[in-house]
Design a protein around this nucleic acid. Structure first.
Lengths: 193, 193
DNA sequence: TCTGGAAGTTACAGATCGGTAACACCCTAG
DNA sequence: CTAGGGTGTTACCGATCTGTAACTTCCAGA
């Protein structure tokens, strides 16, 4: 998991996994392809045989992290089959785990901040993936029997997004420390309407 | 205001103002000192006579934007002297104006995302400035007679922070479009307690 | 055992980065 | 008029960046 250590798997997979990790920790513009390939135990030529550019690699990394996040939703369904309200609380709990200590926040949001060029190819991918996540949360709120499902989902989204970026400014002892409390009382208040 | 246009003032001021604008629009790592000085109608040597490094320039820019934001609070007091609740609503309204169309979000939060090195000199400045802003909002909530002032202030902070970063991912039609509604109903619910 | 493709290696191109040295210029205070 | 500080100009340093060329090595499947 550390930069230089590499378990033997196919170079493409190692590059993707290593790039995800390094982009997350050091930022996209803070990591060069040389550093990625070296940490992945391979070389630059192999990277460019599998990804046509750094931008393509960035996009593949974002898709991979989104897919990973998507799998968590399957856990919610597995842990609380049919109980959508319990799944919503599981979402809150899982979200709070993202707010530990030295978190670097959401890769997609961070990428949107870093890649300021409005026509960067990653931007539309970010938008698509974020919108898909939003619709999942809206559906969960609606299926949990909450009236204003969209509004609750959007509020929870903004709270989490804010908490994840706030952590990077002021740390885990800042406003984000109250995330669970905020989210839970929000859900309660929406259920009471 | 555009990149190349420059009204005649002292080089240091032009550099600072231009750097603020370019850092905001293109990101810190997306702008080189050459581009800044050229847009400011001066040259690199003059920049380094006034700022000992790019990092120092970054810090001065953050302080300048924070000072600008701080002046807005004086407007609140001027517009609604003594009426802290009205000032809180003015804060919500002013915050919503930050969520228009192609906003690039909060410079300090963006800088915290971009400058991932944990010992970067700008990080402690960001933390200080953000904490000062937080305390201002807490004080405003408390003086407006709200019981759980810290919790309301932190919730509003996270909502705004989330809205500003969400805009950069999914645009102004995303969850951030409901910011005013969320904030106002939050304030109402806290006042009712 | 042979072979073909994937992977590794080295070197390089061309650009940009932050930062500095040396020197010419201009404008204002004395 | 003169001296000096702020400014502009040019050239450069060493490092790093994305991306490519040419060549060698390795290994698995037929």
């Amino acid at each position: 998991m550390a930069d230089g250590v590499v378990e033997r798997s196919r170079p493409r997979d190692r590059i993707l996994e290593t790039a995800q990790d390094m982009f997350h920790r050091h930022g996209i513009k803070g990591v060069g392809v040389d550093a990625i390939t070296e940490a992945a135990g391979t070389n630059k030529m192999t990277l460019y045989r599998h990804f046509e550019s750094k931008d393509e690699l960035i996009i593949e990394c974002l898709r991979a992290t989104a897919a990973k996040a998507s799998r968590i939703w399957d856990e919610f369904e597995a842990q609380h089959p049919g109980d959508k309200l319990a799944q919503l609380h599981a979402w809150v709990h899982k979200a709070s785990e993202l707010l530990s200590a030295d978190s670097r926040g959401c890769d997609m949001a961070n990428a949107a901040v870093e890649l300021s060029e409005s026509d960067h190819p990653a931007r539309r991918v970010i938008k698509e993936l974020k919108e898909a996540q939003r619709e999942k949360l809206v559906a969960l709120c609606r299926d949990a029997g909450i009236g204003q499902a969209e509004l609750l989902a959007d509020t929870l989204s903004l709270l989490l997004e804010g908490a994840r970026v706030s952590m990077q400014s002021v740390g885990a002892e800042g406003p984000s420390a109250q995330f669970v409390r905020m989210a839970e009382s929000l859900i309660a208040s929406f259920r009471a309407r």
